[in-house]
């Protein structure tokens, strides 16, 4: 791909990634949602996080990997415990990153 094509590609990707984020907020801010829609929307965040957590732990390389060799599953256990106990993003992140570093460097996964 030559220089000009790369710039065109960047601008194209920019547009298709920007518009889905901006349009709903720009357009829908004027309307009042019915109660049932609001309730439905209130479930979107926990649902999305359930999906993201599962994918990031059980399919870390983009393919589902539910096995003892999946280092992410092992790191998930103390991380979940830290999250439930501390409910602090920073402590959880610290536990997760340290566990991962230890598993990677010393256990030899």
């Amino acid at each position: 791909m030559d220089n000009t094509s790369i710039w065109i590609m960047i601008i194209g990707v920019s547009l298709v990634s920007l518009l889905p984020r901006i349009i709903p907020v720009a357009v829908l801010s004027r309307y009042e949602f019915p109660a049932v829609v609001k309730e439905w929307l209130s479930f979107v965040a926990p649902a999305v996080l359930g999906a993201l957590t599962a994918l990031s732990v059980l399919a870390p390389q983009g393919k589902i990997d539910i096995s003892f060799q999946n280092i992410y599953i092992w790191a998930f256990i103390p991380t979940l415990a830290a999250a439930v106990k501390t409910k602090s993003l920073f402590s959880t992140l610290l536990v997760g990153i340290l566990t991962m570093a230890v598993l990677y460097n010393f256990i030899g996964f």
Binding site: P46, S56, P60, V84, S88, L93, I97, M100
Partner: peptide, 29 residues
């Protein structure tokens, strides 16, 4: 080797735990 690969999964896990307020939240997650 710095373990940073687990930063986002750890973040999702914690946010998920913090997001669970209703009993229905856990079932749906």
């Amino acid at each position: 080797k710095f373990g940073l690969g687990f930063a986002l999964p750890a973040m999702y896990t914690c946010l998920l735990v913090m997001m669970i307020n209703r009993k229905s939240d856990i079932y749906l997650a």
